[in-house]
Amino acid sequence: MQRLDDEMTNKAKTFAEGREIIAFRIGDQEFCVDIMSVREIRGWTPATAMPHAPHYVLGVINLRGAVLPIVDLSLRLGMKAAEPTMRHVIIVAQVGAKTAGLLVDAVSDILTVTDANLQPTPDIASDLEKNYARGILAIEGRMICMIELEALFPQIESEAA
């Protein structure tokens, strides 16, 4: 299982042929993740607050019997806190061996991209952005930042490794 995950990650890192990504919006910015790590997309439901949780962890919700932590991706990326409404969506993503819910404003697109589309993260970015950004995609005049999920949840990665 773990070996398989690693393989998948390695494959995802080299976009030899086209790979599908899910693009989503937070505020006026667009981000994307590899579609292979997305398990499902669902609407917002109020989360149960967790004591001693980092500020960007909104709490946990019930995903068909599993307890799923919800991360305010906007806060996690150093932007302002989301004010979740019924129109917000949760991207249920597989990170290592664990599953987490990412709260975003909306899902905007499913795209097929290749290595040619992916540009390295520009130098101006701060450390935070450099850590989570795998690169920038330029598609039809839009700028989409590709997120490295493992970098957002380092403890999950280290546990899984």
């Binding site: 967790m50 001693h52 019997g65 599993a66 664990k98 987490a100």
Partner: peptide, 12 residues
Amino acid sequence: KSLEANYTHVPG
């Protein structure tokens, strides 16, 4: 239900 499965141990 396990909290550790997808999250982490929470003290208390």
